[in-house]
Amino acid sequence: MPRPILEKALLASIFLPTFMLSECPPGEFCGPSVDEFFPEPILFAGTPFELNRVLLIRVIAFLAVVVLLWLATRALKVVPGRGQVAAEFILGFVRQGIVFETLGERDGKRFLPLLMTIFFLTLGLNLTGTIPGLQIPSTGLIGQALLLAVIAYVTFIYAGIRRHGLKFFKNATVLPGVPLLIMPIIAILEALSTFIIRPVTLTLRLTMNVVAGHMLLALCFLATNFFFFTVLAQGNFLGLIGVGTFAFGVAFTVLEIFVAALQAYVFTILTAIYIQMALADEH
């Protein structure tokens, strides 16, 4: 099954029947659907480099993150300006508040580049859902979240094997002090939790939050458009309800900015915690 079709099936299975995959009849109000995450190609159609709107936004977000970080750090001054203060605060928050606080300074320095990349890339891709003209989070495609989860998964297994060798798998599944009778059951549960549930929950938590947030924003602004330009345009003053849906849309946009940052934080700190657990001698 082609990857876009598989991703659409996965999203549809999660959110249907709340957001139906259907065409909207002219003059009627229809809510958003997961089809929005799978638009038609706009560049390089029919080639391995085919880009649709969501993937193009992903490229723009990546370049924007790289450029902003470069501009923020290219000419650091002893007496910082406001931009440098803001950059130092955010970078310091990730460095000290997430990485060093979780892993300690020695191990934190080893994994700092990766965790910084995960945080800022996830944040940038999430925020595209609230930027006018873009207005869709590319992390809503489950493949993006899955890729980040696989990177986190491989990293903590690599860290554990490098620190403990194959003993890492014993440390991850066999809890000290567990009665011998139930030890096999506990070991199976720990193996499922560590090696299967972790990447699945990382993937679904990020994807479902950003998809739900996008659907909520799209619902508010589609309703605003419907009430103003369909209902009110026909002389029906019920169209003024659009003022309320627009206000809700603005409020939810602010909320989604917070959620975008929160999900980047959660994904990064969970990755750091998993690495720390892999490096630990035992539970």
Rank of each mutant, 00 (worst) to 15 (best):
M1P: 07
R3F: 11
R3V: 13
P4H: 09
L6Q: 10
E7G: 11
K8Y: 06
K8F: 07
A12K: 13
A12Q: 13
S13E: 08
I14S: 02
F15E: 11
L16M: 14
P17W: 04
L21W: 11
S22D: 13
S22R: 14
C24F: 02
P25Q: 08
P26A: 13
P26C: 10
E28Q: 15
F29K: 08
C30D: 14
P32F: 07
S33G: 15
E36K: 08
F38G: 08
I42H: 01
L43G: 05
P48Y: 12
F49Y: 09
E50H: 03
L51M: 07
L51T: 03
N52Q: 10
V54Y: 03
I60R: 06
A72W: 02
T73Y: 03
T73F: 08
P80T: 09
G83F: 02
A87C: 04
E88G: 12
V94A: 00
F100K: 07
G104C: 06
F111T: 07
F111C: 13
P113C: 04
P113F: 04
L114M: 08
L115E: 02
M116Y: 12
M116T: 10
T117Q: 02
T117G: 01
F120H: 04
F120T: 02
T122M: 10
G124R: 10
L125T: 07
L127N: 09
S138H: 08
L141R: 12
G143L: 08
L146M: 15
T155I: 09
Y158A: 13
A159R: 03
H164A: 08
F169R: 06
T173V: 05
V174Q: 06
P179C: 01
P179E: 05
I182A: 12
M183R: 15
M183H: 07
I186Y: 07
A187S: 14
A187L: 10
L189Y: 01
E190G: 01
A191C: 13
S193F: 09
S193Y: 04
T194G: 00
F195S: 05
R198Q: 10
P199C: 11
V200G: 00
L202C: 00
L202R: 02
R205W: 02
T207S: 02
T207L: 00
M208S: 12
V210A: 07
G213V: 07
M215A: 04
L217W: 00
A218P: 09
L219Q: 10
L219W: 05
C220F: 03
F221V: 06
L222I: 06
L222Q: 14
A223E: 15
T224L: 05
F226T: 06
F229A: 06
V231A: 12
G239W: 06
T245I: 11
T245W: 07
F248R: 08
G249Q: 08
V250C: 06
V250Q: 12
A251C: 05
F252R: 12
T253Y: 01
V254M: 11
I257P: 01
Q263K: 09
L270Q: 11
L270N: 11
T271E: 02
Q276L: 15
M277A: 14
A278Y: 05
E282C: 15
H283E: 08
